[in-house]
């Protein structure tokens, strides 16, 4: 049994949120540069140029890529042979978020009650924590600050099994295209198929975090990703929604077994500032 102190978790969470908010992933950066070369619209090329310049400034000056530094979301794989010591695991994560957002000059965007009070919690907590217990004695922490311009354009639908591949393709493409300029295209489209309502949504979120353009290992799903990406990019929406051939950078599908009666589909839209960082302890 390995012992891991909560302070290590807190510090790691803090460092990862700072890194994610300041430095865009190399995969996304390269993809943006490639798309700028291929983009047909002059306005689109100029928007992509601004985005790339913005990402350069943010990394160099260590300031937020986007002012919407999001809700703090974590996917944690906790080894079953790890014993967390020194305090409360969840509180350590929230403390890491608090310190990152306070000391890192990141915007606090969380409100305490969604409907009635809507009072800012002033430290960007609580974090949303997805925890899974895995074999071994390591802890993998993956963090993603998620902005709501794109989160608001996400959707779920409980399709019928008879709707099949065509039903999934149409729903995902329509969700991305109808969002138009709202989610800050070019977007990354995370798709969760199967499970239940909440399982589909959770794996859709996880799908947005895959390295850009890395296909699903199942060739049938990889082909579907490619087909939906092509359909979205033929829409003409373009960078910033101002027309062009770059509307989405990638479509990533994750799937899970489901019920004999169901075909849940969740579409989680992420903007071009698809921020995430991870570390294994």
């Amino acid at each position: 049994m390995r012992e891991l102190h909560v302070d290590t978790i807190k510090t790691t969470v803090k460092e990862l949120f700072l890194e994610a908010n300041y430095v865009i992933g190399k995969d996304i950066y390269r993809k943006l540069a490639q798309c700028q070369e291929e983009e047909e619209s002059p306005i689109g090329r100029s928007i992509l140029g601004q985005i790339i310049e913005n990402d350069d400034i943010a990394a160099r000056e260590r300031v937020a890529i986007c002012q919407d530094t999001g809700l703090a979301i974590l996917f944690i794989e906790l080894g079953q042979d790890v014993h967390i010591v020194g305090g409360d695991f969840n509180e350590a994560i929230n403390q890491g978020v608090r310190e990152a957002y306070k000391e890192g000059y990141l915007r606090k965007s969380a409100v305490n009650d969604p409907l009635f009070d809507r009072i800012n919690t002033k430290d960007n907590t609580p974090a949303i924590i997805h925890l899974s217990i895995v074999p071994g004695e390591k802890v993998k922490i993956l963090v993603t600050p998620k902005g709501f311009g794109s989160e608001n354009m996400s959707a779920t639908k409980m399709l019928k099994p008879a709707d099949g591949v065509q039903g999934v393709r149409d729903f995902v493409a329509a969700t991305a295209i109808n969002a138009g300029p709202n989610p800050c295209p070019p977007i990354i489209v995370g798709v969760g198929i199967g499970g239940t309502l909440e399982k589909a949504a959770q794996i859709a979120k996880f799908a947005t975090l895959r390295q850009v353009g890395q296909p699903n290992p199942d060739s049938r799903y990889a082909k579907l990703e490619e087909e939906i990406l092509t359909a979205i990019n033929k829409s003409g929406v373009g960078p910033g929604g101002l027309g062009g051939t770059t509307t989405a950078l990638a479509v990533h599908i994750e799937y899970f077994p489901t019920h004999i009666a169901g075909l849940p589909v969740a579409v989680n839209i992420c903007c071009h500032a698809a921020r995430h960082a991870e570390k294994v302890l």
Binding site: I47, Q50, I51, E53, N54, I57, A58, E61, V63, A64, I65, C66, Q67, D68, R107, K108, S109, N120, K122, G149, P181, C184, G240, L242, C271, H272, A273
Partner: peptide, 27 residues
């Protein structure tokens, strides 16, 4: 329209910031 997500770039054109109302709302 300003470019969504080009927030660090846009901030460079801002030379001064004053709060004029509803300070309790923070950002």
């Amino acid at each position: 329209g300003a470019t969504g997500g080009a927030a660090a770039l846009i901030a460079r054109s801002i030379t001064k910031v004053e709060v004029v109302a509803y300070e309790d709302l923070g950002t």
